[in-house]
Amino acid sequence: MKKLFVVFSLFCAITLSSNVQAQDGSDAVAYMEELLGSVEEFENETWAYLKSVTRGKSARRIDKKRQKLISEIKSVRKTVNKFDAYENDESLKNALFEYLDINHSVLKEDYDKILDMEEIAEQSYDLMEAYMTAQELAGQKMDQASEKLNQAQKVFAANNNINLIEGDLDKKSQKIKKASEVLSYYNDIFLIHFKCQIQETYVLDALTRSDVSAFEQSKSALVSYVNENRMILDTFPGHDGDMALVEATMLMMDFYEKEANEDFTEVTNFFIEKENFERVKKQFGSLREKDITQKDVDQFNSAVNNFNEAVNKFNVVLDESNKERNKQLNEWNKSVEDFFKNHSR
């Protein structure tokens, strides 16, 4: 299964700092260039990571790149730490520190360092929702840190009479920006699908536990999610006009809807017929032989038949549903691969 990937907000800050002109105070310019230039290697590693993600490399390789990126952040942090304050002004250095720390935490999925996870857990209904909320808030934190760094640059420049000029992005930055947009679009679609996929696992989990209450509730929640997602997907734009991911996700919604409304209903029937049979069997067994009427026998036989029929349907439906799920997921995964292939060149 594809997963959610980290989308970076660093590049705006680096871009802004890439064209610096001094009116006076060349020491300040040098300080600023040197301090922000220390993250150049980080930019290289970021690109390497993004490249591995968007070009469909193996999970192991992506993780290796992620680890390398984490090490690079640590190394950059050490370099930044060696910088003194510029004329007692540590604001730019501190903003850069904060930015690096947040990126480090997000990459390591150390969310509790940057977010109040207890609060998120209480706000969220289940782990799926907590995970999604954490992702969303972590993204916001990264954006905020990036914006803070931008502001810190502007303030530093203004305080030291430096004129910042926004220039065109260099080639690598352009690539990173494009890859980030592709990833961001994918992440949005992924989360739409993810909601239903996790909800489906809750339904299946309840099935294995014969927990009828949880099964029925989770089933109804799955139907609700499908309906919500359909409304979102109906107006969801394509990426550069490419609607393939939206269409693939719509097909998954069709599958989940059919599964919930038809296949899982047979499972419910099985649970109920099984219990009906056990109850009728118990009552039939408690009758004295001389009291048993043809009506009782008919009713007992009817319960046996209903149960047998429910068992057969249960087996057939689950088997078919499993096959269909695998097929649909493979197609969805292929659509994702194609999407990255088409948009990462």
Binding site: E122, Y125, D126, Q199, Y202, A206, D211, S213, A214, E216, Q217, S218, K219, S220, A221, L222, S224
Partner: peptide
């Protein structure tokens, strides 16, 4: 469908939100 159903308190602990583990209704 969704949400806290009651708040539990035991001594020396923070109040805890108690929910049904399954989302959705029957």
């Amino acid at each position: 469908d969704y949400g806290t159903l009651c708040i539990g308190v035991v001594r020396d602990e923070k109040p805890e939100l108690l929910k049904d583990l399954s989302r959705g209704i029957i």
